[in-house]
Amino acid sequence: MKRNTLSGLVAAGLVGALMVPGVNAAGDPEAGRTKFYTCEGCHGVAGYTNVYPTYHVPSIGGQHADYVVSALKAYRSGQRKHGSMIGNAATMSDRDIEDIAAYVSRFRSINVNLPVSGNAAVGQGKAESCGGCHGEDGNTTDPNFPRLAGQHESYLIKALQDYKSGARKNPIMNGIAEGLSDEDIKNISAYYASQKKGLTVVED
């Protein structure tokens, strides 16, 4: 699909993406900009969705470089499961991964106004136990944990459902998600998707 067509889907939703100084991990962001071509077909298109099951491809612009590195290495090893992600990461060297991570970490959103279906106000209360790792508003400064602010609601719902079912493995997240109802998951996801100055599409 053409980028111009898809960008219109969220033209009013993601506003003012900036490249800002950020954590470069051990990578070269300029080299990462070139290597990102294998990722931009999904992560460089605003509003792009996974085919099946249908959910928004996660926004990774502004994500901590160290977290992106760990995620890509997990896909490369097969520890994290997603067909196209495993396929893309399989041929990446450690240097490729570090360069791409350094590049995407430089993007941040000035403002985000994503549509949500859950109750963000209720979700804020339910998300209190998440703040220790992800930050009160999902904008954690700890590079060991992912930023959640401005992430697509549908992606967060899918991630939490997978943690709850055990399809996605993380001892902390599996334990937390186990105690969440479907309504809790929806509302928490709405809360983080509604937060400002968060993640954005990677689009120059």
Results as ranks from 00 to 15, higher is better:
residue 106 R to I: 00
residue 107 F to C: 08
residue 108 R to K: 15
residue 108 R to I: 09
residue 109 S to M: 07
residue 109 S to P: 04
residue 110 I to K: 04
residue 110 I to E: 06
residue 111 N to Q: 09
residue 111 N to S: 11
residue 111 N to M: 10
residue 111 N to F: 10
residue 113 N to G: 15
residue 113 N to E: 15
residue 114 L to R: 11
residue 115 P to H: 11
residue 115 P to W: 12
residue 116 V to E: 06
residue 116 V to Y: 08
residue 117 S to T: 02
residue 117 S to A: 03
residue 118 G to C: 13
residue 119 N to K: 10
residue 120 A to H: 02
residue 120 A to M: 01
residue 120 A to G: 00
residue 121 A to K: 11
residue 123 G to R: 01
residue 124 Q to C: 00
residue 128 E to V: 14
residue 128 E to T: 13
residue 128 E to F: 13
residue 129 S to C: 02
residue 130 C to T: 13
residue 130 C to I: 12
residue 130 C to W: 12
residue 131 G to L: 04
residue 131 G to K: 09
residue 131 G to E: 05
residue 134 H to G: 05
residue 135 G to L: 07
residue 136 E to L: 08
residue 137 D to V: 07
residue 137 D to E: 13
residue 139 N to V: 08
residue 140 T to D: 00
residue 140 T to K: 04
residue 140 T to H: 05
residue 141 T to G: 10
residue 141 T to W: 06
residue 141 T to R: 05
residue 141 T to P: 02
residue 142 D to M: 14
residue 143 P to N: 07
residue 143 P to I: 08
residue 143 P to T: 09
residue 144 N to K: 15
residue 144 N to H: 14
residue 145 F to E: 09
residue 145 F to P: 14
residue 146 P to H: 06
residue 146 P to F: 07
residue 150 G to Y: 02
residue 151 Q to C: 05
residue 151 Q to W: 02
residue 153 E to N: 00
residue 155 Y to C: 01
residue 155 Y to P: 00
residue 155 Y to H: 01
residue 156 L to V: 02
residue 157 I to E: 01
residue 157 I to Q: 03
residue 158 K to A: 00
residue 158 K to M: 02
residue 159 A to M: 08
residue 159 A to G: 04
residue 159 A to F: 03
residue 160 L to N: 03
residue 163 Y to R: 02
residue 163 Y to S: 01
residue 164 K to N: 13
residue 165 S to L: 00
residue 165 S to P: 00
residue 166 G to Y: 03
residue 166 G to K: 05
residue 166 G to V: 04
residue 168 R to I: 00
residue 168 R to T: 00
residue 169 K to V: 06
residue 169 K to H: 06
residue 169 K to N: 05
residue 170 N to T: 03
residue 172 I to S: 14
residue 172 I to C: 11
residue 174 N to T: 12
residue 175 G to Q: 10
residue 175 G to F: 10
residue 176 I to Y: 05
residue 177 A to T: 10
residue 178 E to C: 09
residue 178 E to Y: 12
residue 179 G to P: 03
residue 180 L to C: 12
residue 181 S to K: 12
residue 181 S to N: 13
residue 181 S to E: 13
residue 182 D to K: 14
residue 183 E to D: 09
residue 183 E to M: 05
residue 184 D to E: 09
residue 184 D to Q: 09
residue 185 I to Q: 14
residue 188 I to W: 03
residue 189 S to H: 04
residue 190 A to E: 08
residue 191 Y to S: 09
residue 192 Y to T: 07
residue 192 Y to R: 04
residue 195 Q to H: 06
residue 195 Q to N: 08
residue 195 Q to P: 07
residue 195 Q to V: 07
residue 196 K to G: 15
residue 196 K to P: 15
residue 196 K to L: 14
residue 199 L to C: 08
residue 200 T to W: 12
residue 200 T to E: 13
